[in-house]
Design a protein around this nucleic acid. Sequence first.
DNA 1: TTTTAATGTTACAGAAATATTACAAATTAA
DNA 2: TTAATTTGTAATATTTCTGTAACATTAAAA
Lengths: 226, 226
Amino acid sequence: MKGKIFIIEDEASIVQLVQHNLEKEGFVVSSSLNGNEGLKELKKFEPNLLLLDWMLPDLSGIDICKNIRRDSNFKNLPIIMLTAKGEEEDKVKGLESGVDDYVTKPFSFNELSARIKAVLRRSDPKVVANELIFEDLKLDRIEKRVFRSDKEIQLGPTEFRLLEFFLTNPKRVYSRDQILEIVWPNNVNVESRTIDVHIRRLRQSINIEGKKELIRTVRASGYSLI
Amino acid sequence: MKGKIFIIEDEASIVQLVQHNLEKEGFVVSSSLNGNEGLKELKKFEPNLLLLDWMLPDLSGIDICKNIRRDSNFKNLPIIMLTAKGEEEDKVKGLESGVDDYVTKPFSFNELSARIKAVLRRSDPKVVANELIFEDLKLDRIEKRVFRSDKEIQLGPTEFRLLEFFLTNPKRVYSRDQILEIVWPNNVNVESRTIDVHIRRLRQSINIEGKKELIRTVRASGYSLI
DNA sequence: TTTTAATGTTACAGAAATATTACAAATTAA
DNA sequence: TTAATTTGTAATATTTCTGTAACATTAAAA
């Protein structure tokens, strides 16, 4: 089951871009260009998540947040706020007033999408797939467990993220740089050779007796999940 | 089918670099160094995607964007804007005025190429054909795999690039120098006879029992994919 | 036919990419 | 706090790839 997402954002072009792409991903999306009306429509729409612009012409994001948190029907509605660069302080206020995550404009749709899923995964696991499966490999994102042929496997945090990444894009070959960019936290400087070591660790963990190798080395290109 | 890309950018060196590399990847590329002329040429050229510099001497990127979005023939033309570091605020404006993605200078060609393909994949999937097919030969660029009559074939990096090149231009004969220029990384000096050896290696790999030879030698001219 | 030029084939040494290991520093758990 | 785990890197080992030279074969020219 895919979830419902409501957007309150006064810049029509952003709404259009985001709405269009989310719908493509299978979400049901509704939106409003201003705060007061948005609040009303939202409560009728009953979304699984709200994307909320921080700077609206009428109501402030904080006010909307507070209103929602006061309403017993919506007090647990996950909220991701959209904030312009330089409104850093607002982020603090945002988190204080019960926002689940924030995305700074300008953002790529991919970034937004990833955060939406991450938030939904925590709050409403039904809505978003949380088990990643490839052949006899299974990874549960919520319970943070990994199985190969129903046998549980212990992984360190980095190997877990690495495998999670491969599982979301099986068969595709990724360069070390791409892997670094996606799997490692932002702005860390890690030798790209370091990937090799983590690949080795991951391989060592997921390769069990008698089962085939699942990670493919593509010389001069990178690695892929078979 | 190969995609067409138009570039509006006033720094000739960037244009040259990008144009050259995109052509190497099989795109048809045209460009203009200034906004007003660019707009006219673009509409004649009918590209699948526009690379647009944000700071042009005459027209601003925003103006060009708006002009394009107003023209019913081009209102859906994907646009990637090139912005200099520190013009962060412009990015916001960029997304507002309907840009699909942006790349910050200085950028690596790989990054640009990846974004171009990502955008095209959404807007015009035919254009970024991931699979190159010729008769019973199939090359998957994303998975980096090659098949002949559905049987997978193992190739080294150079042979892979060589075959990829031939597949983007089947039947056409290329001289050794042309092949070197396109298939080998820039600024390497290799004997042109070296090509012969790689052709041999490629032939050996893709020629399977009972199937016909796919690479044709054209004496005094070069080689072609049949 | 003989000669000549172009291409095919082979083997190999060095280069380049990846695998593996060990270890110290950093992080987390107890 | 100490102990245990995790991380990144550097050093080393191993594998695979590359380019070239030498020789063989083929096709065209004389």
